[in-house]
Simulated assay, not measured.
Amino acid sequence: MHAPATPTFSATTVHTMLSRGVWALPVYAVLLGLSTLTQQPDYATDFEAYAAYVTTNTFLVSHLVASIAGAAVGIVGVVSLAAVLIGSGARSGRILIGAVLSIAGNVANTALFGVAAFAQPAIGRAYRAGEEYAVALNADVYGPELIATAVTGLALFIAGAVLLGTATARVDGLRASGITYAASLTIFVVANFTIPILQPVMAAALTIATLAMARRLNQGGS
């Protein structure tokens, strides 16, 4: 009795599958934009508004879908982009480092999204129920440990975006897309702490850039 044949994949098939995976990047960009359409009130200056905001269904869905699931979609896109570029003969060093840093940054950032999705609503509900400890609990949650995680994750995320974007820009036909990728993700992160209204704009720029990347790489040339 013969053993069942083991399915095999040709290099062309693998390349095609990975190329299609690059389409995850514009999906990720759209999710980033959706996650920034509203802004969280500052708990240091208006805890009541903050508590009301973080107890809405919109806040929870935004973090579960746009932020946490979005990070997973972004990782799929980054891995696919890196693999396609390296498989097409692009210089691998900067691409690999950029992909690794991007993935590490996204994974670290999901810790923040998880706290936001589950801890913040609980704190908000406690505050609105008249529990005096809610403000102190919020300060404890957003203490040095979480801040250090945030700084590390965002630094890795920016470094990965810059390296992967600039490496992509060296590929024929992807110069503008690669530069926009690096710049838009960097500004997106910085704007969160400076000019939040820029975040949806940068997400839109990222969407356009990654759509161009996916379209180019799915036409068979790089």
Rank of each mutant, 00 (worst) to 15 (best):
I187F: 04
T168P: 11
P200T: 12
V171Y: 00
T180R: 06
L163V: 03
P196D: 08
V189D: 00
T180F: 04
G165R: 01
T166M: 14
P200H: 04
S177I: 02
L164V: 01
R170T: 14
A183M: 13
A182W: 02
A176I: 13
Y181A: 11
L198S: 09
V171A: 10
L174Q: 08
A191P: 13
I197D: 14
A176V: 15
A191Y: 12
L163K: 00
T186K: 03
L198V: 13
P196G: 09
L185T: 07
L163M: 12
L163E: 02
L163I: 04
T166H: 10
G178E: 07
L174P: 10
P196Y: 07
V171C: 08
N192L: 13
P200R: 00
I195C: 11
A182S: 07
T186V: 03
A182Q: 05
P196M: 04
A191D: 12
A191W: 11
V189L: 10
S177N: 02
Y181G: 01
T186Y: 07
D172K: 13
Y181E: 02
P200W: 03
P196V: 10
A169S: 15
D172A: 15
G178C: 11
I187S: 06
A167F: 02
S184R: 07
I195F: 15
T168M: 04
P200D: 13
I187N: 04
T194Q: 10
F193T: 13
A176Y: 05
V190G: 00
T180Y: 05
L198Q: 12
L174S: 10
L174W: 08
A169W: 09
G178T: 05
A176C: 02
L163Q: 03
T166A: 06
V189S: 09
V171S: 11
A182N: 05
F193K: 09
L198F: 11
F188Y: 15
F193C: 08
D172Q: 13
I195H: 14
V190F: 09
P196Q: 10
A191V: 12
L164F: 09
F188N: 13
L164P: 02
I179P: 01
P200Q: 06
R170L: 02
G165S: 06
L164I: 07
A183C: 11
T186G: 06
A183V: 15
A182R: 03
D172R: 14
A182C: 12
L164K: 00
L164M: 12
V189A: 03
T166P: 06
P200A: 07
N192W: 12
A183S: 08
R170Y: 00
A169C: 09
T186H: 06
L185W: 13
F193G: 12
R175N: 05
R175C: 00
